[in-house]
Design a protein around this nucleic acid. Structure first.
Lengths: 377, 377
DNA sequence: CTGAAAGCGCTTACAG
DNA sequence: CTGAAAGCGCTTACAG
């Protein structure tokens, strides 16, 4: 037996409770209600509590649009990206999103293509929305926006993309990461370490090459042959392996540092197909820690994780600082990644899998045991 | 020689030009300016043009926060997803984003984890922002939100996720897509068509199984053996192939319909490794059109594309209708995908690659030519 | 055809 | 400690 015709607990969603409602309910002014809710100004704890209680009871939630209008900010940032495939941007976006969410800042996703017009339209839309900041994310550290960004009057951070001289940017430290990968190989006794990577004109390629050379020099080793460039594909890894391990060669590498996990995958497949045991005869380290590949190789791949999620978080925290008006030194920061150990370099990490029994071309033993490594020094 | 100390063309970014500025400049009221800019009301073309010109000259851009406050809407929708990996959500998001952008609606990305608390917090934040609608996107058609969504008073659409009975949802039509894939095989003369797929408790699995059975029945064929379930991995495809093609078997399949591209990849690798030629001896069709896999198999994979990008666009258009107050029949819609032809079923599509010269276990010929297919009917 | 006024839901000087 | 008032930048009845 309902009291009357009024619906009981289903307030029409389009007339949500406002701060006036909680002020009225509490018997204070809107001003006081606002202050109580925002924890500013001094007032008797009793008043504050009564306001809070009323807000809770009414289910009051501040309208962030109104708040944005008076505060002249939106508590939102725009994420502009051209990475439709999302492999690089997504972890960055997730990290950014989570570090901002804690402070009540939301993220607009503008997954534009490379088309300059669309990117501009997206940026305009973000300005119209008075975003507090803009993150420009890319899939290549040597590519940025297709045009120069004018001064928007809001903070801008570049993530995994190239950035103008005086801007703030964060990219993975390719050289250091490569160095780590190669040192990992050296530490495991490898001394004839080849490098198979992607396209030559990617800055990521040259930095990784430099890291490879650097780590080798540090260990008094010489590069094993020339860098093998390709197009980042599995196919290239496959072909490169066949060449590096060709029976007619005077010398075989005992390890290969690969520019990405797909290359490593192709390379391991090729090695296996011609009876070279990984890691017994050949240690392999990849790059990206793209699990779908890294875990599917046999053996599972030891590889470099660029820590893109953490990079996204750092971008978020920096953006928050910038929004708060803190000073941040301009420039490009290179962030270190980490090695994820699996089985392709011997030993084993978290993702241990039983070793296969395939017979090795070299009798199943570890070639490195038999061959004395001589340094260049 | 500058006239005075005032900076010339660099208006402080924080005091952007408002509609009052363009009204003043034109010598009309703010009301008229607003109407001219929004193309509403009747007025002399001359006035309208003068306002427009002033706006353009001043670089006026309406503040969408203010617009949102009065219009009681934000011209933004929230995208809630638990797909951190992004493989499914990203195309959906891109499609959604592009179809909304044309109408000036932006997308908030809430890449929450499965954690119910965080999802709730994200939804609350979206409500505080007065989003015009919410899209709940998932990576499994049989999983939805970890809790029941109360009536939010705004349109909600589920995308590639399960949805409550009276809600609106869009998912790929797994059964139809599977049917298409199998019919494609049948049309090429295959008659012993096996099915290797992922986990049994995924609705996607059972629907695809049904599509397989249905297409077979339609062609008066029987399923080749039992469905081979696994965990969606390459490894499972590999193992399944070894079993299906074991030398001791009474009969071999002449085609395999795979539940995803990874399975197909493993299966093709295994087949090749034991001398079975694809497509010569065995036709293979995958599912997902995940190019990184589909293009890396040798031969490249003929596979089902679920058209997730288009699904995202449809979700966007439907959301726009809903926001406009149009009626949309509740219920779950299953959207068709398409077959992408490559080389793994013979013939060839856009991604033609030269065929390899590997010798086939069956003499390099197409087994299907030699073996008469008998129907069950 | 055009404008003055009210109002969207908040916050923030400015007074008491 | 608390409140009345102004204002953020728009749109939209309501009058002329």
């Amino acid at each position: 037996m309902p009291d009357d015709d009024l619906p009981e607990n289903t307030a029409p969603a389009n007339c949500r409770v406002t701060i006036r409602d909680v002020a009225r309910q509490t018997g204070v002014s809107v001003t006081t209600a606002s202050r109580a809710l925002n924890e500013i100004g001094r007032m008797t704890p009793e008043t504050r509590n009564r306001v809070r209680a009323a807000a809770a009871e009414l289910g009051y939630r501040p309208n962030s649009i109104a708040r944005g209008l008076v505060g002249k900010r939106s508590f939102a940032v725009g994420l502009i990206t051209n990475d439709t495939y999302g492999r690089f941007t997504l972890p960055v976006a997730a990290g950014l999103s989570s570090s901002m969410a804690d402070r009540g800042v939301s993220v607009f996703l503008c997954a534009g293509e490379d088309d300059a017009e669309r990117v501009k339209a997206n940026i305009d839309a973000m300005q119209d929305r008075r975003v507090d900041g803009l993150v420009i994310a890319g899939k290549r550290i040597d590519r940025g926006l297709p045009f120069e960004l004018p001064d928007l009057g809001i903070p801008v951070i570049y993530a995994n993309a190239s950035c103008p001289p005086d801007a703030i940017g964060f990219v993975p430290d390719d050289q250091l990461n490569a160095h780590m990968a190669v040192s990992h190989l050296v530490a495991r006794g490898c001394c004839r370490i080849a490098h198979v990577t992607g396209k030559k004109d990617f800055e990521a390629s040259s930095l990784r090459v430099r890291g490879w050379e650097e780590a080798l020099a540090e260990a008094n080793l010489s590069p094993f042959g020339d860098v093998c460039y390709g197009n980042w594909s599995e196919e290239c890894g496959y072909t490169a392996a066949l060449e590096l391990l060709a029976p007619g060669r005077a010398e075989w590498p005992d390890a290969v540092f690969c520019g990405n996990d797909q290359i490593a995958r192709g390379l391991i497949d090729a090695a296996t197909s011609i009876g070279v045991d990984v890691p017994g005869d050949l240690a392999v380290v990849g790059f990206d820690n793209w699990e779908i590949f890294a875990k599917a190789t046999r053996p599972p791949l030891t590889t470099v994780d660029m820590e893109l999620l953490e990079l996204g978080r750092v971008v978020g925290r920096t953006m928050l600082d910038l929004i708060d008006g803190k000073d941040v030194e301009p420039g490009l920061r290179r962030l270190p990644g980490r090695i994820v150990e699996r089985r392709s370099c011997g030993g084993g990490g978290a993702d241990l899998e039983p070793r296969t029994n395939e017979t090795s071309r070299h009798g199943g033993g570890n070639q490195r045991e038999d061959t004395k490594c001589h340094t260049t020094g």
